[in-house]
Design a protein around this nucleic acid. Structure first.
Lengths: 328, 328
DNA sequence: TTGAAAGCGCTAACAA
DNA sequence: TTGTTAGCGCTTTCAA
């Protein structure tokens, strides 16, 4: 059997309560006892059972981080950003994927709740109101949304200025003389895409360019699907002269479709992507991207959550970080 | 206060033990009571506290997964492979990064132990014996190593046939007429690199090509570092005609150095990498890679761990999955 | 400055 | 088929 606080107490000739005081560095303990206890801990290789501690303190120091897909470098970086501050503050992170599936999201959130996490940072898989998130709010489980928002859910949300970022990107294309700008986005239900599309529309409107429904195409959240849509788009009689993609994978898919067709970038078709795309090697291709401070988003979300866990009762905040448009 | 099993019991007019039987689907419960209890659970929105359960059952159904860097797509895929089977089996995953740092590895393992994880899957940051891992073995905490091994540690280890994979890759280069093959690897202390280097040597030996120390360069685990080493290597008077890189990031760094210098691949310099590199777009560059069944490695490691958790006492296994050499 | 006792929410004997 | 009891390992009053 593993060694418990009782074993340490016996070995040191004191009560468990005194050992507990030493472990938690709280209350008064005589130097003599402190030393004896520390020696006993070392000799026995004692490690406190945090489960038992959590039972009485009602705090697990565990935070759940729910992303849609850790394979997307964007979310991997986000996770690192969150991890950095939570680790520093002595919290453990449980990471879970939802695969952009609301049902899985529900299941994952339930599991995390059962684990008694102290709080949750979540990338919602839809912006539609979901009962499992309202439930969290009702139960006063600290929750911070990141990257995307959920309608009518009054919780802290950390996002970038999607509308403005897209506006900037599309304005750049317009300025370069493009009047037919295709858009490839995944799920049109998530807030980032809604906002980015709004930015796109505003850029066109401002330039007096009519909005063409047929240039907006949504697809599955896979590179393959984006590829197929892009291929179709550039193959038609009246193709766009530029494409705006709203995330990493869409950009890659579109890129491959363009390369396959043997078109030159940006001479024959321009492409601007959203997200901090780390293309390992872009070669001669010129791609401008709307860069997001993803690591910082993770930091900020984690700080917000910790503040809530520590009792911050202020009204829900919407925090917007700035994107940076970088032309290559 | 949150709702407990006692609340449910009161509402349903039974004892907590009966409610526990319903939740755990064990023991006898009359249909009438079962229905009453289920109704009470639903009405109260009761969720069992798994912490309390774990205290008595001595099992948390939590598995720790320790990788060196979740930003590396290789480990991200590995994590998904592990997650897939653990989730199916009702286990929760705690994911932690070590950043290739043995000290952090020690700290992370300690934290996970304190969380009372049922077992650990770990990518060791060094193949040198480490006390914190021996401690796990001593305490009979189920442990499975993945991707890399640790010397003199008798635990299940899931790897690929690194030696053979490297042998195949280098033999291919030799066959193409290359006799000066440079190698860029990161930490020469980790088992994968040791084995891959051995495969490299065997391929040369077999072809009667002398082994040149100066063609073997190790670097930091960053793309930048690999880039610098590669740049230096190809700039010298007597450059290699081919480069063998031992992981994702090394390949990318070398690739960039080659492109920068304006060299053509494979005409002026060939490159063969290890790892399942998902180059989004390789354009005209020809890169052959030793592909690893990374997702499956995760699956197998998870299965092994679950078997151990369920009491498998057989001697430690070394499992080797096959790599696949793919020329482009 | 210390210890005894109670109890966190749950499960597992055991008895009824 | 059900309830009573004890106890998992810890922290936290409270009294000494």
């Amino acid at each position: 059997m593993s060694v418990t606080i009782k074993d340490v107490a016996e070995k040191a000739g004191v009560s468990p309560a005194t050992v507990s005081r030493v472990i938690g560095s709280r209350g008064y303990v005589s130097d003599k006892n402190r030393r004896k206890i520390q020696a006993a801990i070392r000799e026995l290789g004692y490690q406190p059972n945090v489960l038992a501690r959590s039972m009485v303190t009602k705090s697990t120091c565990i935070i759940g981080l729910v992303v849609t897909d850790i394979l997307n470098p964007f979310f991997a970086h986000l996770a690192r950003g969150v991890e950095k501050v939570t680790w520093q503050e002595g919290f453990t992170l449980i990471l879970a994927n939802t695969d952009e599936d609301p049902d899985r999201e529900t299941a994952v959130v339930r599991t995390l709740q059962a684990q008694q996490v102290d709080g949750l940072i979540l990338v919602p898989s839809t912006s539609l109101p979901s009962p499992h998130l309202s439930e969290l709010v009702d139960r006063k489980v600290p929750l911070v949304l990141v990257d995307r928002s959920v309608r009518n859910l009054a919780v802290d949300t950390v996002m970038v200025d999607n509308e403005h970022g897209a506006y900037q990107a599309v304005s750049y294309l317009v300025q370069k003389g493009h009047s037919q700008v295709g858009v490839i986005l995944d799920n049109p239900e998530i807030s980032t895409n809604i906002e980015r599309l709004a930015g796109y529309r505003r850029a066109l409107e401002e330039a007096g360019i009519p909005y063409r429904e047929d240039l907006i195409r949504s697809c599955q959240y896979t590179e393959q699907s984006a590829h197929d849509i892009a291929a179709e788009m550039i193959a038609r009689a009246d193709p766009p002269s530029a494409i705006f993609t709203t995330n990493n994978f869409m950009t890659l898919g579109a890129l491959n479709a363009i390369i396959e067709r043997g078109m030159k970038i940006p001479e024959q078709i321009a492409i601007v992507g959203f997200d901090d795309l780390e293309l390992p090697w872009m070669g001669p291709a010129q791609i401008s991207t709307v860069r997001q401070p993803v690591h910082e988003m993770g930091n900020v979300a984690a700080q917000r959550l910790l503040a809530r866990i520590r009792g911050d009762q202020s009204p829900a905040l919407e925090i917007r970080l700035k994107t940076r448009f970088s032309t290559e």
